[in-house]
Design a protein around this nucleic acid. Structure first.
Length: 270
DNA sequence: AAGAGACCCTGGATGC
DNA sequence: TGCATCCAGGGTCTCT
């Protein structure tokens, strides 16, 4: 389940093989992947465009094109992008493929078919509702404090809300709350100043650890080159139900909160 | 504002 | 062994 660290890892690995390359065309056996515009128009508009830059916003990958438009990909649950020689035999779940001008292809593998690809004139068409980037300097303790104020929701679902902060998913929300020693069901507007500072630090720590480990290879996530990340080995609570808390030895619990599996230490997180 | 539920999908796990 | 059923997961949408 690619979140900020996994998407960023993907972006970093795609820059070298893709920047400067021209897209000759797109083909798909799952038209729903091409969410906007409709697949016919999509194909016409993408053909001949050169990729000039690649960056991440939240969990979206953005390919800036030479005509100012943007090709935007959301990997959702199982999406995977790779650049391979055109003659490489396709993977069973390679559903959408962009042909490049160097005998290579950008392939979008997506077992669960939740992924979506957009071609837009302005990225803000998709990004306008996103919250701040948690690893950018603008994401200060003060900003977090002001965004928490007046929100009565439980913290865990709030952290998953992309309009609150962009890029955090289930894994890193669980990890961040553990690092901050805050219970996932605490109302967002009832944190002490010290807890807000701790949460801010914990969000950045969890995401930075994920980045340093090249992402977490849970649920089939692989980097574009096919290698696994190592963050799955470093997780403190996510997926560790029944295991011992690294901090106090208590048993890690799993509970459904806001419809999502939530892992936490009942002793450390209050 | 926020919570619940539906929806989109697959495949692994579980039940019989 | 082979079915049927359930469920997780991210994000968006509708309804309350």
């Amino acid at each position: 389940m690619p979140e900020l660290p996994e998407v960023e890892t993907t972006v970093r690995q795609l820059r070298l093989p893709l920047i400067g390359k021209r897209i000759l065309g797109v083909r798909t056996n799952w038209p729903k992947h091409l969410a906007r515009p409709d697949p016919d128009l999509f194909g016409q508009r993408i053909s001949g465009r050169r990729i000039s830059a690649i960056y991440r916003r939240g969990k979206y990958l953005t390919f800036e094109l030479d005509n100012g438009e943007s090709l935007i990909v959301h990997l959702k649950m199982s999406g995977h992008l790779s650049v391979v020689d055109a003659e490489t035999s396709p993977h069973r779940h390679d559903h959408t493929v962009f042909a490049l001008d160097n005998e290579q292809e950008l392939r979008f593998r997506d077992q669960r078919k939740f992924g979506r690809i957009y071609l837009v004139e302005h990225p803000d068409e998709l990004f306008s509702g996103l919250g701040p980037e948690p690893l950018e300097p603008q994401f200060t303790v003060e900003l977090l404090k002001s965004r928490l104020a007046g929100r009565s929701r439980a913290l865990k679902p709030l952290l998953l809300d992309q309009g609150f902060v962009a890029g955090i998913g289930n894994i890193y929300a669980n990890e961040a709350l553990f690092h901050a020693r805050i219970h996932p069901q605490r109302p967002a507007n009832r944190l002490t100043p010290a807890e807000i500072t701790a949460l801010h630090k914990a969000i950045q720590l969890a995401l930075t650890l994920g980045l340093q480990n090249g992402g977490a290879s849970i649920d089939q996530y692989l980097r574009p080159d096919g290698s696994k990340g190592s963050m799955q080995n470093e997780l403190a609570v996510h997926g560790r139900e029944g295991g011992a808390c690294n901090n106090c030895g208590a048993t890690v619990e799993r509970k459904t909160i806001g419809g999502r599996g939530t892992f936490f230490c009942p002793m450390c997180q209050v």
